[in-house]
């Protein structure tokens, strides 16, 4: 196994080496720190790569890797001043092409972003995609992502994040309560087709996540925000557990289990039998749970506690009852 896994990591390192050489060729003398910042890597990773490049080359006419067949750098300047200058180069003249899959990943990412308010210039995106295709070593793989929906709410919120001003809106939470909120918008996030705002809520005096499709009547204020993402320790994950969360045992078809992954706490006990997985999920209240489970009919069932089962049963039964009209209930 180790033999097969190793090349993956090595593949990243190889790509980096092949990318670093042309970059160094364009810079007569550059510090390790600058290169690290540019490539988003650690200084030690840059030093390792430079040391390797400095002793690499081609077999050459003698097939003996003679001095003139190797890259060379100013070793003293490198060791003493942490500066890189390439003094001799071989084989490489230019940056490598993208692979078909690399180009496809970026093109699909662009497709997804293409409808967003700040990318109104569709022609510019199309030309960028064409460039990626032309810069790939083979036709990009057939991967497509539908452009994300966009509306005025998203563009207003984006503007307020950029401007650093507070925003106000009506929010309907999953309990069905509607309140006017004033928030410090910190980050706009999406997961596939759904958009969220992470913000400091002045009403709750805490960081909250708001679904954009539950926001109505947004108004951007002139008031600067009072909390910043760095100050409030905005977590990376969208769905945060809290100590007040309720724990619920559910059974879900194994194939559908990934759909609930956001709700399963780390280290949750799970057991599998007959293609069904029994696990624990964490929810902030049963109002959210009933909506979640009712949208997975036949796939997920709440096992305990009884109150949670009852909340789901009542929700679904009330829904079904709407179809009975004049017909007697109880069937």
């Amino acid at each position: 196994m180790a033999e097969r896994q190793a090349p993956l990591q090595a593949g990243d390192k190889l790509t980096f080496l092949l990318s670093l050489v042309p970059f160094l060729m364009d810079h007569d003398r550059i510090s390790v720190g600058e290169v690290a910042a540019h490539f988003g890597m650690k200084p030690e990773q840059i030093r390792d790569a430079v040391r390797l490049i400095g002793v690499s080359g081609i077999p050459g006419e003698t097939a003996q890797y003679q001095h003139e067949d190797l890259f060379d750098i100013s070793w003293d300047d490198f060791e003493e001043n942490d500066q890189i200058s390439l003094t001799h180069r071989v084989a490489i003249d230019d940056s490598p092409r993208f692979s078909a899959r690399e180009a496809a990943a970026l093109i699909a990412g662009l497709q997804y972003l293409s409808a967003l308010p700040e990318h109104a210039d569709r022609a510019a995106i199309a030309s960028l995609m064409a460039k990626l295709s032309r810069g790939a070593s083979a036709a990009p793989s057939q991967l497509a992502v539908e452009a994300s929906d966009t509306d005025e709410t998203l563009s207003l919120i984006r503007d307020s994040v950029t401007a650093g001003v507070q925003i106000e809106f009506d929010y309907l939470n999953s309990r069905g309560e509607r309140e006017r909120r004033r928030v410090d918008p910190l980050r706009v996030e999406s997961l596939d087709a759904d958009w969220y705002l992470r913000a400091w809520c002045h009403l709750r005096e805490a960081v909250r996540t708001f679904r954009l499709d539950r926001i109505s009547a947004p108004v951007v204020t002139a008031e600067p925000i009072t909390h910043r993402a760095g100050d409030v320790g905005l977590p990376d994950t969208l769905f945060e557990g809290s100590d007040d969360d309720l724990t619920v045992v559910i059974e879900v078809a194994t194939a559908a289990a990934p759909l609930l992954a956001d709700y399963v706490p780390e280290g949750a006990e799970t057991s599998e039998r007959d293609g069904r997985l029994r696990t624990t999920v964490r929810v902030s209240h049963y109002h959210g749970l009933k909506r979640l489970i009712a949208a997975m009919p036949g796939v997920a069932v709440v096992i305990e506690p009884p109150e949670a089962r009852r909340a789901v049963a009542e929700w679904a039964a009330a829904g079904a009852a709407r179809y009975n009209d004049s017909a007697p209930t109880g069937g």
């Binding site: 790509t15 990318s19 970059f23 810079h27 540019h38 692979s99 690399e102 990943a105």
Partner: peptide
């Protein structure tokens, strides 16, 4: 991973 490698190549251009 593909995106990460694509970005390295992009950075290569300076």
């Amino acid at each position: 991973a593909e995106s990460r490698r694509a970005l390295l190549k992009l950075r290569s251009l300076g």
